[in-house]
Structures are given as C-alpha cells and as structure tokens.
Design a protein around this nucleic acid. Structure first.
Lengths: 335, 335
DNA sequence: CATCCGATAGAAAACGTTTTCTATATATAT
DNA sequence: ATATATATAGAAAACGTTTTCTATCGGATG
C-alpha cells in the first residue's frame, strides 16, 4: 500500500525527514551519499509524496475549477479541453462541475470549491447577481469569466463580440432580401441574449424593417424550448423567411422543429447561427455561422488564469474574441 | 479575505478550538451558550473550513477522478455527466483528466492523481498493460473501469456487450442481403476493437460469407483515419455494399468520407454503428445503431465506485450493459 | 458523606509535508 | 592558531483541522 510517508523514508535511510524533503525537492544541498540512500529507500518503499500535506503547507492545491451549466454541451467541453491543455503546463488539474443552469446549485458548487482552496476558477456563470463570484474573489481565488460577463464583477474576462456578429449575420439575411426574420434567443437575463438581440435589432433598424414581436423568442434556453417556439412560429400563417439562432443549442432545437414540420433549410427557410453548428459535419447545405473558436477560448482562459495566479500580470484583463463568418449554403436570396 | 481559521473563531468567541470544531461537526455535545457564540463568530468572520486540512486529518478528499482519452468526445462527456450526478450525492466532486490517447500521458496523470489522494477513480484506459492502474489499486484507491476492461486487473467494471451487438448489427446487414460488408474498427489492442470484430466475424462465419481483408480496417482510432480508410475502400472497384462502424467516432469519419465521395447512405451504401450516432439528430435516414446509454454508464460507474468507497460492497462487480438496436433507415434490402 | 456518572470543554497529539533555525564539521583566510 | 565561511543535516515550528485524552463541575446514587 502506497502508505509510506516521508518519516518512513527517513527511518529507512537513516537520515532526518528534513533531509528527505530536501532530496525530494532538490532545493537544498544534500551529500551524495545521503541522497543515494534516500533515493534507494523511496524506490524500495514506493514512496509517493502526499499532495494534501503539501497543499496544506504550501497553500497551493494545483487544482483549478471549471464551472459550467451543462457538461454535455460541446461548447463547454471545447472550453474544458483548451483549459485543461493550458493548465497542464503548470501542473494544474481540472475540477469540472456543472450547475445544470441552477443558480442555487452553482452557489453551492462555488462554496465547496472555495473550501477546497482551488488555485483558480473559470466560470461561465448562470448567476446574474454575481454575489458568490465576488465571494470567491474576496477569498483570494483568481477568477476568469468566460462567455458571460457579470455586472459589477471586476476580474479577467473573455467574451465574444455578440452585438457585432449578430448584426452581421442579420444583415446577411437582409442583404439577401429577407424582411421577415425570426430570432431564437436565449434568455435576456443572460448578457449574451441581451447583446445578440441588440445586434439583431440594429440590423433591422438600419434597414428600416419593423420588428415583429411574434418573431422574437422571449426566454428559452433548452433545445426543447427552442423547438417549441420555432414550431409555433413556423406554423402561423405569417411566418418568417429566415431564422437567426443565438447559439448552437438554439440551432439544435430549430432544426428539430424544421424536420418535424418537413421544412428544408434554404429551400423553405434560411438559417444562420451564432456559434458552431455541429450539424455542419453532417448536413448540407451547411448552416452559415458566426463561428466561435471555443478551444481557443479555453486556452485563453487558461492563460489569463495563469497570469492571475502567478500575479505576474495582476491587472485583470478583458478579451473580446472575434468570430469568423463561416459561409454555408443556408441563406437563400429572395425577393 | 476568507482567511479566518478555526483558531480565529476560537479566539473571537472565547472558547477552545476543540469546541469550535465540535460546533462545526455537531458530533459532540456543546452548551447552547457556547454554540451560539461560536456560530456568531463564524458568521461575522465569514469562516470557511479548510477542506485541505480536513482531508489531511480525515484521509478523505471528496474528490473522484475521471480519466478518458478525449474530453470533447460526446461519449465520454455523457459518462462524465452521469458520474458527476451520482457522486454529488456523497459530496464528491470530479477531477477530469484526458490523456489524448497517450499511454505515457495517462500514466503521468494517474501518478499525480494518486499523489492527490483522490477517493476514487473511474477510467476508460488507453493503456493495455494496466500496470499503473494496478498501482492505483495497490495504493488503496477504488477503481472502476468503464468501456474498456484490462486483462489482469480485478476491480469493478462496466462494459458493453460488444460481441453480441456487433453480431446482431452485422446479421442485420446479412439478413438484408448484404454479402460485401466493411468494418471500420478501432485498434485491436483495444478490447472493444477485438470483440466488435469478433461479433462481426461470427455473423459472417455463420452465414458462410468469407472475410475480405481489404474490407477490414486494421487499426485506427481517429475520425480522420477512419475517413481515409473508407475513402480508400470505397474507391476500389470491388467495394462493399454495407459498412459497420465500431463507434461514433468511426462513424463520423465514415460519413465524412461518404460525403466527399458523393455517396448517399441507403441509396449507395448501407451503414450501421455500434454507439450513439450524434448525426441522427440532423440527417435522415437515421443510422441504424446499437445504442449505448452512456449517461447510465456514468451513473452506474458512480454507483459501483460508491460501493467500493464505502466498502459496503467490497467485492468488485462486473456489469455488462445491454444495448438497444435503434432501427434507422440506413440499411437497404438488396439482392 | 463518599463515589460515581454525565455533561461540558480544554490540551495535546496526529495527519504529512516544507522551511526556518540551529548546530556541527571542514576548509579557507588572516 | 584564530576567526570566518561553507557544506551539510537535525530539531522544531507551521499549515488547519479532528479526536483522544483529561479535567472540572453538578448532581445522582450508594
């Protein structure tokens, strides 16, 4: 049993535990003879330093946490992947926790993460209040916000340029002759939802197209709700000729609805999405999108977090990631 | 700063640290008066117990680890989701680590996880040797193997009935008149690969159909390699009329290849997969599959792990999860 | 009245490290 | 020969808890 402690090694090799520790860490001079005896003993007893004890002494756990709403959303998983990659560089492993979108659950998660004394936190928060995140910061935990900013929280952030690319996609519809455009949005309490709607609106406004409330989904977040909304919207006698989806999940629901209704992309309705359409791997025409480099977002989050942890660059930093308009064949020229 | 320790609380409330500890844990009698003073102090100083110190003392970290090859594979993420859900029940959070399929990396990960003294490990190992996993077990860490068993490792496992369902899918092809059937398999050193090929072979054998080596992919694991293999295979003048994919990633590569070649599922080639076809959300005909309930696999893994941790059921257990044949429209009747 | 018991609470040991402080021996400089 | 570095290594404190071991005080029991 890997139960050997530093004390056992000391005894086995006839030196003090201080000396053993110095051999392990290599940060103080130890005679060759002693070192060899210690190393031999460690080998023989299959010694493994206890990271818990180390953490207690060093005030450092080598653990970072990622808190998201849903583990199975590819969007978050790409972030996780990038983050893990990046943190591995400083020997930091990743605790992943999901809130299922529940504010209550998220707060509980943060509480136990604080108690666990994680070295850093990356969070795509579902909590618009931000009180608990402030608590983390006050507890001395470096925090990086991803995907969603929170009013009143000052720390490193990495976001998308929601307004700009929503505007561009909407304008793309308009330039192709569309006037009746629906938007399948996430909740407006979420800042993404707010800004993606803003961009959508600006494009309409600039083109002099009046908004139609029945074409604007008010507040959903699940694929199912999106599906329901689109089904309703497309069943009405005045239906849009184009649909803008605010993220990949909204697109999923939208496609589901269109399939159920027997409507084809391009032929029957034009579609665009803010985010990465997983479907493009499978269907054609591909859905035109404002593609997000989520892997990079994870990596950048890791970089920002490392900066905060090392205090090298203590000033918090806000990064706005650019999207790239990926032209698919899902927008039909009409009129 | 959440820097208050139990000592500070003791001082602030005029009792000993023992008493504070007893208030926190509620496992020993404390006078009402003392309790109230302590609770007040904890409130005022925003005290948060240090989980590290607790772990050191209690020999328990409330951390379980999940080690997989690729974080962004939906297959593993569903497992993660189920596992997280289940472990939350005993206040255990999840460290997630990915090896990228590298044996070397996996071993390093396990080493640091042992040092971190995690309470349990769930792993879909890429290492056929199993030496490091044995080390974990010897170090006293409960281990549950998922998706892949390892020869010589005795611990709880939860697997699929690879041979049986591969046989069934292949037989489905045969029953529909197919004789030239390709298999896009993962590496044979992986037990899944081995058994999925076995099932495939048995079906052919029973039907008296000779195997064609050029229809059997030898050893790939990435979607890209699968794509390459299928492209080659389908470009030859004698090409199969049906393709069996050994998992979701192999299917991805296969579909990619078919798209590139302009071949349509059903019309030009029949397809089936062992696993969950993410594509079925988007395309039709849906791909016929031996569906895996990966969420459940994660939950079961959590349950088995909890059993091992609590020692309630110390005997290791092997579970074989059934698949469900999901009839899509991807198999054409021919001949 | 002596004894014992239950309720309460403090002191101290323990968990396994790292690091400061101190001590010794040897080598170098005066 | 004496003072002074230098290399090496042990003792002990510290990190923040939990729990065992003791101790005190009242009251109940003989």
């Amino acid at each position: 049993m890997g139960e050997a402690t530093i004390k056992d090694i000391a005894k086995a090799s006839g030196v003090s535990i201080s000396t053993v520790s110095r051999v392990i860490n290599g940060n103080y001079p130890v005679s060759r003879e002693a070192r060899e005896r210690v190393e031999e003993a460690m080998q023989k007893l299959d010694y493994r330093p206890n990271a818990i004890a180390r953490s207690l002494r060093n005030q450092k756990t080598n653990l970072a946490a990622l808190v998201v709403a849903d583990l199975s959303n590819p969007f978050f998983m790409e972030i996780a992947k990038g983050l893990e990659e990046e943190m591995a560089g400083i020997g930091c492993q990743l605790v992943i926790a999901s809130s299922g979108g529940s504010v209550q659950k998220e707060r509980e998660l943060l509480d136990t993460l604080i108690e666990k004394r994680i070295d850093g936190l990356v969070i795509a928060s579902s909590d618009n209040e931000g009180g608990h995140i402030k608590t983390c910061i006050e507890a001395g935990i470096p925090v990086v916000l991803v995907d969603r900013s929170i009013e009143g929280i000052h720390t490193s952030q990495i976001l998308w340029d929601d307004e700009k690319y929503s505007y561009q996609l909407t304008k793309l519809f308009i330039d192709n002759g569309h006037k009746d455009i629906g938007i399948v949005n996430v909740t407006l309490t979420n800042p993404n939802g707010k800004w993606r709607l803003e961009g959508f609106r600006r494009a309409l406004r600039e083109a002099g197209i009046p908004e139609k409330p029945e074409f604007i989904s008010s507040s959903n977040f699940s694929s199912d709700e999106a599906c329901y909304f689109v089904t309703q919207m497309m069943a009405a006698k005045n239906r849009p000729t184009a649909i803008f989806c605010a993220n990949n999940i909204m697109l999923q629901g939208t496609l589901q609805a269109l399939r159920n209704l027997g409507l084809r992309i391009y032929d029957d309705v034009s579609v665009a999405v803010f985010g990465n359409p997983e479907c493009n791997r499978y269907i054609s025409p591909a859905v035109t999108a404002a593609g997000q480099d989520t892997l990079k977002m994870g990596q950048m989050a890791g970089e920002l977090l490392k900066n905060l942890i090392s205090k090298e660059e203590n000033r918090e930093k806000t990064m706005i990631l650019k999207s790239e308009i990926l032209m698919g064949g899902s927008i039909r020229r009409i009129g």
